[in-house]
């Protein structure tokens, strides 16, 4: 019995010292004692594939082809009446009119919801370089992205919305395209928000709605306040026009 207990205790101690405790960091792939059907021979998003040369499950778009919708119903997609959305509404998808000119104005309805969407997407994708107020002084400037432009000059204020759309989609100079990350509607929303930023940075005291004017003038007399540009578009407008008004007067 004594020998048995000795071996028992030894084995327990050995197990704990070999396997350690839960939560310890390790770099080797986890062991599967019963793999069951955990790993199946099927294509997964971004999966690895030994059959294709570039080892990807995801197949690239065949050059010279265009996607005809993402519907599973082949009858619908290959129907003669199928409308290729891009051909139907080039303004929305390319920023150009049928005759090839840049669109001015928006091919979507500009409302509060669109503005909020634009603000959200701008904050995610644009703010890191272009900064929250669009002056091109985003956080990446400190790390070496030196060529980011400010939106606040006459060239960009007068630029057609369609041309901005094209820049977002395909990129320009050192900026890469964001067409894969943003849907067309989202790109238009970002442009709407960008226009709001431009307006806010170029505003005067006259742009401030009367109910807020008194408050603004009072706050100008108070010591410099901290402006929070990432709030509601309206708030941004007021905050920023306050700094603008300061400089014009």
């Amino acid at each position: 019995m004594r020998i048995f207990l000795g071996i028992f205790v030894f084995l327990c101690v050995a197990t704990v010292s070999i396997f350690g405790i839960r939560g310890t960091k390790f770099t080797e792939p986890p062991l599967y004692v019963f793999p069951d059907m955990d790993d199946q021979e099927k294509y997964r998003p971004q999966g690895e594939n030994t059959f294709y040369q570039n080892r990807m499950d995801d197949r690239p778009v065949v050059p010279g082809t265009i996607a005809r919708g993402s519907s599973w119903e082949t009858a619908k997609v290959f129907n003669e009446d199928f409308n290729y959305a891009q051909a139907d509404n080039p303004e929305l998808y390319t920023g150009k009119t049928r005759s090839g000119e840049w669109v001015r104005g928006f091919p979507v309805e500009v409302n509060h919801a669109l503005m909020e969407l634009g603000q959200q997407k701008y904050t995610i994708f644009c703010q890191v370089c272009h900064s929250a107020i669009g002056d091109g002084d985003g956080i990446t400037k400190q790390y070496g992205v030196a060529t980011t432009l400010s939106y606040h000059d006459d060239r960009l204020r007068d630029m057609a919305e369609g041309e901005i759309f094209n820049t977002i989609t395909h990129g320009k100079n050192t900026m890469s395209g964001y067409g894969e990350k943003l849907r067309p509607e989202e790109r238009w929303a970002v442009i709407a928000y960008l226009r709001a930023l431009q307006r806010a940075q170029n505003g005067t005291l006259d742009d401030v709605p009367t109910p807020f004017k008194k408050e603004l003038l009072e706050s100008l007399q108070a010591p410099a306040q901290d402006s929070t540009p990432a709030d509601e578009p309206e708030t941004t407008q007021e905050d920023d026009s306050s700094t603008q008004a300061e400089s014009t007067e």
């Binding site: 396997f19 839960r22 939560g23 310890t24 960091k25 390790f26 770099t27 792939p29 986890p30 062991l31 004692v33």
Partner: peptide
């Protein structure tokens, strides 16, 4: 030891 709490937690490749 036999559950993902040990088998997977801490995997840091």
């Amino acid at each position: 030891y036999g559950t993902p709490k040990y088998m997977r937690v801490g995997y840091q490749p």
